[in-house]
């Protein structure tokens, strides 16, 4: 068991490297067939043709594609993600700047999804096929069924602009001095610094974007909670508990829920990667300084090293979450074959 788990882990790690390598290759190929010119995107349309060619040479975009890719890989092995064409800074620097805000947003969104999704899922399972079930599902699925940008603009328009209940876009109000930069996640930084005013402001700014992004994932969480709860409730020990004359509510909360939540939480872990890429629209509307906006900006400007950096990071995050989930499952359920 010990031995095979170790071998399993090694194999999975090797596969992850392979997958990440494949992702960079696909991205590289994609960015070079995009019918736009990164140099013109950078210099602007007024730049004379001679300047465009000169800069193309300076960036090295006039070299043969295989050479460019091999050079990229060589740098990558040294931990160098290259220099962004647009802002002339190391891509790793940019990622370090934009990633924390997205992690902060996605984590908060996950909390929202669990807070709304798990209770609705329980209600839904308890009252299967009766009206509370229908209502809970329609409520949870409602968030999954509206375009994110519409919900975001509507909520901003009503709760921020019309009534002023919640703050506007960004991570902090303009007159709130930002806490010292530590992790890049403003709420965490404020907490560490003991700056309660900044913490309060940061949390209030998180409410709307986290809700918009989290509500979008609620449908999935509800559905998972509902179905795994229903499945667990058919199992013997639950039946035994029920037969012993325990109240239905107690059966569910005491016995079934605990076991039903495990698969739910795993699914949630897997959707974290989706949240990262789903944050593009939310970040655009809430002026959230995260990786989603950086990604969109890089794709529209055909900033090859930046796009490569973003997909690389996303692929690594996805693979790691996947790996962790699988290992946890394997640990919990020895019947799973290591394949």
């Amino acid at each position: 068991m010990e031995m095979s788990l170790a071998r399993y882990l090694a194999r999975r790690a090797a596969l992850t490297v392979f997958v990440v390598f494949g992702v960079t290759l696909i991205t590289f190929a994609l960015t070079h067939v995009v019918p736009a010119d990164p140099v013109v995107a950078y210099l602007g349309d007024h730049a004379p043709p001679e300047l465009v060619e000169k800069v193309r040479h300076q960036i090295g975009l006039d070299r043969p594609l295989p050479v460019q890719y091999l050079l990229y890989l060589r740098d990558l092995l040294r931990g160098d993600l290259g220099i962004s064409i647009m802002d002339n800074r190391p891509v790793s620097h940019d990622l370090g700047q934009y990633l924390p805000a997205t992690v902060e947003l996605a984590t908060s969104a996950m909390v929202v999804a669990i807070l709304i999704g798990v209770p609705t899922g329980i209600v839904s399972a308890l009252y299967k096929d009766s009206w509370p079930d229908q209502a809970a599902r329609v409520f949870a699925l409602g968030g999954t069924s509206l375009p994110v940008f519409y919900v975001a603009l509507l909520l901003l328009g009503v709760l921020y602009s019309r009534f002023g209940v919640l703050p506007g876009p960004g991570q902090l109000s303009i007159y709130t001095p930002p806490p010292p930069h530590l992790t890049g996640m403003v709420a965490v930084d404020a907490l560490v610094a003991g700056d309660w005013a900044a913490l309060g402001d940061a949390l209030r700014h998180l409410v709307l974007p986290a809700f918009v992004l989290g509500y979008f994932s609620t449908g999935l969480v509800t559905r998972m909670t509902r179905s795994s709860l229903l499945e667990v409730m058919r199992q013997d020990y639950v039946r035994t508990a029920r037969a012993k004359g325990m109240g239905e509510r107690r059966v569910v909360l005491r016995h079934a829920l605990r076991n039903a939540l495990l698969p739910t939480v795993t699914v949630i872990g897997l959707t974290f990667g989706d949240l990262l890429s789903g944050s593009v629209l939310t970040e655009t509307i809430f002026s959230w300084p995260g990786i989603g906006r950086y990604a969109t900006n890089s794709v529209t400007n055909v900033d090859v090293p930046a796009v490569l950096g973003v997909t690389l990071v996303a692929a690594v995050i996805y693979s790691v979450f996947n790996l962790v989930t699988d290992v946890v499952y394997a640990y919990l359920d020895p019947q799973i074959r290591y394949t």
């Binding site: 596969l15 392979f18 997958v19 990440v20 494949g22 992702v23 696909i26 991205t27 994609l30 960015t31 067939v33 995009v34 019918p35 736009a36 990667g273 989706d274 990262l276 890429s277 789903g278 593009v280 990604a295 969109t296 794709v299 529209t300 055909v302 796009v307 973003v310 997909t311 996303a314 692929a315 996805y318 693979s319 996947n322």
Partner: peptide, 24 residues
């Protein structure tokens, strides 16, 4: 399966943006 791994690991919106940009 490794191919599906790669596609699943790819941020889907970015992949969709890139493909859509390539094909107009």
């Amino acid at each position: 399966m490794r191919l599906t791994d790669m596609f699943l690991a790819f941020p889907s919106l970015i992949l969709a943006m890139a493909i859509s940009a390539i094909l107009r």
